[in-house]
Amino acid sequence: MPTAFADIDFSKPLPSATGDRQIQFREALREAMSEEMRKDDRVFLMGEEVAYYNGAYKVSQGMLEEFGPQRIIDSPISENGFAGLAVGAAMYGLRPIIEFMSWSFSLVAADQLLNNVPKMLYMSGGQWGCPIVFRGNNGAGGQLGSTHSWTVESMYATVPGLKIAIPSNPYDAKGLLKTAIVDNDPVFFLESERMLSDKGHVPEEEYYIPFGKAALRRGDWSGERDSDITLVSFGRPVNFCIDAADELEKDGIVCDVLDMRTVRPLDIDSIIQSIKRTNKIVVVDQCWPFASIASEVVTQVCEKAFDYLDHQPVRVNTDDVPTPYAKNLEMEYLPHKGKIMAAVKSVVRR
């Protein structure tokens, strides 16, 4: 029996994120898809190399064997075609999961992704939505050059009608993807090639992580000790923020690290809750700075928590240039621990 979105009790506490069932990020994604596919035969996976190649990045390894070629479907290199096919199939009543080998390649399907997927429900006066999960690698994979290193969240997040999830660890990857698959709205699910081999505890028991609820990775809601600054991030850079926070703690600077998990919906409430006790915020975002998610967070903070700020909000984005190939230039281009620590120190003067 398929799990219906309406039947999930999101108020139920999530299972512990610590334990010794250590699996890779890619395995967590696979578990999420396989579990939902076992329950719901309307769900299928389509994309380049997902079947016989076992996934370009081995996310779908073994799924062909379990579900067969009619549900794990190798598509030709034809993003606009199969993204549009998914729209038709979803309107008809199926629940496609579409894998983009890279979100960089989603750009050739931009018309389907920007026009049809998010707007179908509205244009049709509520008759048809597009319950599709589009997922794949997002962000710089490591010296892939300018065209293959897109971070698409700021560009796509501007369109109403979409939900966008960006997990930072295996536990979230599984719980968020399971929610994405049962959600009746289209979900853009952004993974990172650089995190697919990351290992973490993923519990045996089934769980669905609600969208729009940030996780506090460092700091403490109990208020025993107020943090000095709020660090907000999502996806891979959350891990850089955690590293920076651990390092800063040695210098006596305590950070709240908020992992947004989803950027649409954006859990601005948790951000404001944190700012109320830190009065300072740094947003770390691997998109370009201009009109980025970081810009959006800063704007909403200014609109909704202006009086709580003791320092102007600060953004750490990728540099405002195309992604370079050279290793040292790419390193310098991306947000990293050093940049985050410098930004925090510019705000928290000790």
Binding site: L121, Y122, G129, P160, G161, L266
Partner: peptide, 14 residues
């Protein structure tokens, strides 16, 4: 403001 999402939740829009 209707028919934008089927599963409406807080903070989908600023």
């Amino acid at each position: 403001y209707s028919d934008v999402y089927q599963n409406i939740q807080p903070n989908l829009s600023p």
